[in-house]
Amino acid sequence: MKKFKVLMIEDNPGDVLLTTEALEESKYVVDIDVATNGKDGVDFLFQNGNYKNATRPDLVLLDINLPLKTGHQVLQEIKSNPQTRDIPVIMLTTSSTQDDILTSYQEQASCYIVKPSEADQYREFIQVFDRFCGTFDQ
C-alpha cells in the first residue's frame, strides 16, 4: 500500500488537529507536513528558504482563507508551475459559497470539501479522502 506524503496548508490549529487525527483513521499511511500560511505553503512546495530540504508532497490539503497568500493564490502558483502542476490539490475549507467552489475548480483543484463542523463528521472526510487516494493506488 502506498504511503501518502500530504502537505496541509492551514492556519487554524484546531482544524490541523482534527484533520490530522482523522487522517490517522485512513486506510492509507499518511505522513503530514503543515504550513500555517500561504507563503510558507508555497515555499515548502518550491523548496525555498527554510524548506530547501522539504520533500514534495503527493497531495496538498489547502484552505482558502489563509494569511499572507490566499488559498486561491497558492492554487494558482501550484498549477501554473510545471514542477508542481501535477500534484493533486484538495480544497479543505469552511467556505461553501458557489463562487469559491467554482473558482477552485476553474483553478484546477482536484476536489473541494467543506470542512466538517463536528469531530464525528470527519468520518465522511476520511471516506472521501480514501476514495480519492484509491485512484492513485491502482
Rank of each mutant, 00 (worst) to 15 (best):
K115M: 10
K39Q: 12
V6Y: 10
K79S: 08
Q73W: 12
I9R: 07
I32R: 07
T135L: 15
N65Q: 13
G134R: 14
N12D: 14
S117W: 05
I64K: 07
D33M: 03
S96T: 09
E77L: 11
D86H: 08
L23S: 03
T97D: 08
A22T: 02
V42E: 11
L68K: 03
E10S: 10
Q108I: 01
D130A: 03
A119P: 03
F132I: 02
S104V: 01
D86L: 11
L17W: 03
R85Q: 12
I101N: 03
K5G: 09
I64F: 07
S96L: 07
T93G: 00
C111K: 00
T97K: 09
K69A: 03
K52R: 15
Q138E: 14
P67A: 03
I87E: 01
D99I: 14
S96V: 12
L66T: 09
N37V: 12
E10Q: 12
T94R: 02
Q121A: 11
K39W: 02
K79N: 06
D58G: 04
D137P: 13
N53E: 15
V128W: 05
C111E: 10
D99T: 01
Q47P: 08
G134V: 03
Q121P: 09
L92W: 00
T103S: 09
M1E: 15
D63T: 09
N50T: 13
C111V: 10
V114Y: 01
Y105W: 00
D11T: 13
L45Y: 01
A35E: 11
L59E: 08
V6T: 04
E24H: 01
A22W: 00
I64M: 11
R131M: 15
T20D: 03
L18N: 06
Q138S: 15
L102A: 06
K79G: 00
I90L: 09
R56W: 07
D33K: 05
I64R: 04
F136E: 06
E25M: 02
V30L: 07
I113F: 04
K5R: 13
K27Q: 06
T70Q: 12
I87A: 08
L92G: 12
I113P: 09
E77F: 05
A54S: 13
R123E: 02
N37E: 09
Q121C: 11
V128T: 01
F46D: 03
R131E: 15
E21C: 04
R131V: 15
Y28P: 00
A35R: 10
L92V: 10
R85I: 10
F44C: 06
Q138M: 15
E107S: 12
V74A: 08
K5F: 14
G71D: 10
P57K: 00
V74D: 00
V29I: 14
K79I: 08
G71H: 05
N50V: 07
H72F: 14
D40Q: 13
R123I: 11
V114G: 00
I64H: 08
E24F: 14
I90P: 00
F4S: 03
N48Q: 15
